[in-house]
């Protein structure tokens, strides 16, 4: 095994197994892009069928959406910092920034759930119109990904504390960082093609 370890590379790239896992995760992200594309397509087709119910400009609130966007964008940045410090073998900074990432992610989820509850109280539910059905499915799928990411990250933090930085834990940390950045990429498109689009037209 030791013959396959290349110490000139960052921890997460040092073994063949790690490199394959990272490549595999990129391919998974390619499939995730296509998954979200189908949901955006549904929203693009049905997003203006209100069935007499509320329209986007009736229910969307710029401030709340902007706070959600900034929380997720900042969490993507702090997650990048966590990996940056991991590559300097700085376990303490890695954990600090990774926990901040999680807190920002949890803040995002809190805002989003509050937003959904607010919509439902205004009579904008999944059953109201094709616009709201496709809206909740697209946003809900993204929110479910964030929820899953938080659970995953908590488990990874426990493992980092137990095992320290090894090629295996570094690879896991790197892969979850790819996942987390990807969720922010999806959000950029939700922010633009759902929220801003809805508030323009």
């Amino acid at each position: 095994m030791s013959a396959n370890v290349n110490h000139s590379l960052p921890l997460e790239y040092q073994t063949e197994q790690n490199r394959l896992n990272i490549l595999g995760f990129w391919i998974f992200l390619g499939a995730e892009i296509v998954l979200f594309a189908t949901l955006f397509a549904v929203y693009g087709v049905l997003g203006h069928r209100y069935a007499g119910g509320p329209t986007p400009s009736d229910i969307f609130k710029l401030n709340d959406v902007l706070i959600e966007t900034l929380l997720l964008l900042t969490s993507s940045f702090t997650c990048g910092l966590a990996v940056f410090f991991m590559r300097q073998r700085n376990m303490k900074q890695l954990l600090v920034w990774f926990v901040i990432t999680l807190l920002l992610g949890a803040g995002f989820l809190f805002m989003e759930i509050r937003e959904f509850i607010h919509y439902v109280h205004e009579g904008a539910t999944m059953q109201t119109s094709a616009f709201l059905s496709s809206f909740f499915v697209l946003l809900g799928t993204h929110g479910a990904h964030v929820t899953f990411g938080i659970i995953w990250a908590v488990m990874l933090i426990i493992q980092l504390l137990q095992r320290g930085l090894t090629p295996v834990t570094a690879r896991k940390m790197f892969i979850i960082s790819l996942y987390w950045h990807f969720l922010d990429v999806v959000w950029i498109f939700i922010f633009t093609f759902v929220y801003l689009k809805g508030m323009v037209g």
Binding site: W26, I27, L29, G30, A31, I33, V34, F36, A37, T38, F40, A41, V42, G44, V45
Partner: peptide
């Protein structure tokens, strides 16, 4: 891989609409 995924995504979204 990413370029191909983006291509498929554009075909799905633009094509469906």
């Amino acid at each position: 891989n990413m370029a191909y995924a983006v291509f498929v995504a554009i075909v799905i979204v633009a094509g469906s609409i």
